[in-house]
Design a protein around this nucleic acid. Structure first.
Length: 364
DNA sequence: TTAGGGGTATTA
DNA sequence: TAATACCCCTAA
């Protein structure tokens, strides 16, 4: 993987540091692996680091009455950089550990969203509509590409290595229950691949699940999950409606194809295959553990277009003539050159429009 | 970037 | 309803 640009490193760090459930050891590892990032560039990052210091100070027990916890917390708050991050009320309760902890909790809660989250929200979240409405054609293409490639990457991984899929699902399940040892597992699981901490990553998964369970109107491109998932999903549904999938390996396929034997047909079921099912209403507990349930989807023949159709404009005679002239001059296919050569004429026409138009003209 | 197939939306 | 404009996708 190419090294992260400083701006991206900042986004990753700001995102991870602001998640309280990401243990400090993981954050430290992340810091070591990222290009230098100045915390002063982000109030959220500054505040997150300050809160982490306070968390560390307040993590000890003050049951022995030694005042050690309080002393540590005071030390942290004495740092002008830390103090500057908080309103005065933190200083007011310097003598009350319990109150200080409550206020620290509240400060964590009120941490502003990271740039990463805001960006994700602009692309796929509730802010997507505004982003879309304000974007020009090029930006929209980029947004679409970003969403598709990400989805393909995820779905590709699922498809290429089905045995990994349950882990993904289990991770999502674990995230939904949000266990207390999440941080520890995050450290174990994720130190190998920084940036996938369970903390906000799990939140993101929860959020993702919420999005998926929302009505289809919110999913702007249902084709993305269609291709890789549908085959398994519909298969699961078909089987579920007939004889409830057992998930057993296909009978004797392995026997007939020993390791050294002929290559098994792609049509044959692999023993490691996992069946994904559309939610049919019954609970997960009623089906074998290897059957993973997909979120509710209403299938639709085709989703609404990702880009609202632009106002339909009839080609003028001038445009048609200029197009023909341009093809004569620059050759068929050099739509970009033609568009550049006649910017006024083709101002509101894309090269694809021109290609389509020329194609249509040739049909008659 | 472009071609081309094929789909949907809009208009006459 | 056919023609046309526009869009999406894939391959090269």
């Amino acid at each position: 993987m190419p090294p992260l640009a400083a701006a991206d490193a900042f986004r990753v760090l700001e995102f991870v540091a602001g998640n309280r459930r990401v243990p400090h050891s993981l954050l430290a590892g992340l810091l070591a692996g990222l290009p230098p990032v100045s915390p002063h560039t982000s109030p959220r990052l500054r505040k997150a680091i300050a809160l982490r210091a306070l968390d560390a100070a307040l993590s000890g027990s003050d049951a022995d009455g030694s005042g050690e916890v309080l002393r540590k917390a005071r030390d942290v708050l004495a740092d002008p950089g830390v103090a500057a991050c908080f309103p005065d009320h933190l200083a007011v309760v310097r003598d009350d550990v319990a109150a200080l902890r409550r206020l620290v909790d509240a400060e964590w809660e009120s941490l502003p969203p990271s740039e990463f989250e805001l960006e994700a929200d602009r692309i796929a979240g509730a802010g997507a509509l505004d982003t879309w409405a304000n974007a020009d054609q090029d930006t929209r293409k980029k947004l679409r590409r970003l969403g598709e490639s990400t989805a393909r990457e995820i779905l590709g991984k699922l498809g290429q290595d089905p045995s990994k899929a349950p882990q993904v699902d289990e991770a999502a399940n674990a995230a939904s229950t949000s266990g207390a040892n999440e941080g520890d597992r995050a450290q174990q699981d994720d130190e190998a691949h920084l940036g996938r901490g369970k903390g906000e990553a799990s939140l993101a998964q929860e959020d993702c699940a919420r999005h998926q369970q929302e009505p289809v109107e919110r999913t702007t491109d249902a084709r993305i999950p269609e291709k890789p998932v549908t085959s398994a999903a519909t298969k699961g549904k078909e089987q579920a409606t007939s004889s409830h999938v057992t998930g057993q390996a296909a009978p004797d396929h392995n026997k007939s194809h020993p390791v050294t034997g002929p290559k098994p047909s792609l049509m044959e079921r692999k023993p490691s295959a996992i069946v994904y099912q559309w939610d049919s209403g019954d609970s997960d507990s009623e089906r074998p553990s290897h059957q993973r349930r997909l979120p509710n989807y209403e299938r639709r023949m085709r989703p609404p277009p990702a880009v609202p159709y632009k106002t339909r404009k009839k080609w003028t005679e001038i445009q048609e003539r200029t197009l023909i002239e341009g093809v004569d001059k620059y050759g068929k296919g050099n739509w970009k050159d033609i568009k550049i050569a006649y910017p006024d004429v083709f101002q509101d026409r894309s090269t694809v429009d021109m290609k389509d138009k020329f194609r249509n003209m040739g049909r008659h």
